[in-house]
Amino acid sequence: MDANAVYARALSRAFGGALLFSFPLLMTMEMWSLGIAVERWRLLVFLLLTLPMLIGLSYYAGFEPTFRLKDEVLDALAAFGVGFLLAAVLLGVFGVLRRDDILTQAGLGKIALCAAPAAVGALLAGKQLGERGPGAREKERAGPLSELFLMAVGAAFLAFNVAPTEEMVLIAYQMGPWATLALVAISILLLHVFVYQLGFPGETRRREAGDFRRTFVAFTCPGYGVALLMSLYLLWTFGRTDGVAAHEIATMTVVLGFPAAIGAATARLVI
C-alpha cells in the first residue's frame, strides 16, 4: 500500500484515540475554567513538558513502528497537532469558545490544556487500535528507567482525568488523617497487586526480578513515589496548592495519588 495512505489511516486512528481518551476532559467544566485560570508560567511549563513526554511515549507506542529519533519527533508533533485540532473543534462545537477569540488567553488556554491528554490519546491509539500487537522491541527496552517513565505517564494520564475537578479538593477536606493513611495503604496495595499478581503484560519478567520484598522495594515503592510526584505536579499546575496548609496539600496529593497509582500500575496495559 502507498505509504501516504498507510499514514493517513494511522492518522485517522490517532483522531479516534484522541477522541476516546480526551472527551471526558473536553466535557468537564473545570477544564474550561482552568484554561482561563491557570497561571501562564505553569501552563507554559506544562506545554513544554508535554512535548518531550510525547516523544518518549512515541518511542514506546507511536502510531508508526518507528526506530529513529526523527520519526519519534515527527510522531509526537503530529500527535500534538491532532490533539490540538480535536480539542479546538470539539470545544468550538460545544460552544465553550463562543465568546473567546482564539488568540486570547481564554481561548488558547482552554484548547492547550485539553490538547495534551488528547495528544496522548492520539499516540496511544496508534498502538491500541492498530493492527500490530505489542512488539518484541518494547519489552526488551523496558529497563528500570523506562519502566518508571511509563509509570509516570500512566499516572499522569489517569490522574489528569480527575485532577481538574473540585472533587479532589473536597475529598481531601472530608478525609481525616487516618482515612488518608488508609488510602495510602490501599493505593500501594493496589499498585502492587495490579502490577505483579494479576497477570498483566510484563509481569513475568518483573517476577523474575526477585521475591516479594525485592519487587516491592524495587518496583512498587518507586511506582507509588512517581504517582505521588505526578499528583503533586498536577495539583500545582492547576493552582490547587496555592496558600493551602501543608497537611491539606499532602492529603490532596494522596487523594489524587489513588488514581495516579492505578494509572501507574496499568500503564503497561494501555501503553
Binding site: 492518522l11 506545554l47 512535548l51 519527533v73 508533533l77 503530529a78 500534538f80 497537532g81 490540538f84
Partner: peptide, 13 residues
Amino acid sequence: SAAVGLALAATAI
C-alpha cells in the same frame, strides 16, 4: 501532519 503539529505547538507555547 508533523508540520501542522509543530505550527500549533509553537503557537500555543
